[in-house]
Amino acid sequence: MVADTSSTQNISLKLRVWRQAGPDQEGRFVDYQAENLNSNMSFLELLDVVNDDLERRGEDPIAFAHDCREGICGTCSLVIDGKPHGPHHGIASCQTYVRSFKDGDTVVVEPYRAKPFPVQRDLITDRAAFDEIQQAGGFISVRTGSACDANAVPIPKEDADLAMDAAACIGCGACVAACKNASAMLFVGAKVSQFALLPQGQPERDQRVLNMVAKMDELGFGNCTNQYECSAACPKLISHDFIAKLNKEYLQASVRSAFKARSSV
């Protein structure tokens, strides 16, 4: 399939890929033999090569989501041999390389499995649910042009760094895919924590967490049982400490909102 272009080792793999024509169609695994692969090729490039072959034969190529191919856009979303984003730790599917597999291996590739992420086609799932959670409160309201000087409020470096740890989430959904309960707690925890850690996030702090969690529940994500599979699969190694923080934020907000004095006007 692919010409040998370098001195690196060439290997063959058997791919077992989930094929499903549409959201309401039945799916199944189909096997593909991929020969003579350059081990420096990325896993997505491997799929490109298989697809090239399929297209040339007039067959439907395997649909898979991808864009940046450097681990930042969060589009790629393969479950490879049972682990979202493949065998390695802290990287996205697009940063997985063929050299991670041994010659002759069978590699099983499937889409995320979670009810709020319905399969669109083959390996592509619809993750709009994450956008909806974000729309429910994942923002700080600031009118364009109304902001005060950026240095007017100093922020302790530690807080800013921790907020950045949380903000590094790429919204890929691997946490949901890896969680046996299909819970979105890591994603939501990261977003809620980022804002809760910053002074700018304070005015809407309670409302934000209450609304985002309500939306998360409404969309049918599962319930966390603290198994930490999510953070193990997360390509950005978002810590499950943010789930603990989310829990606390939610409980505090619930209590505060129950006892807060209300203006009578």
């Binding site: 682990k83 499937e110 992420f117 299909a182 819970s183 599962g222 319930n223 049982t225 599979e229």
Partner: peptide, 22 residues
């Protein structure tokens, strides 16, 4: 919570099931 989580997993299950660190 368990029933909800079951439902959240969706109708189709993974072909390869794997635990990472739970």
């Amino acid at each position: 919570l368990t029933l909800e989580s079951r439902a959240a997993r969706g109708p189709e299950s993974y072909g390869v099931k794997k635990w990472l660190r739970a």
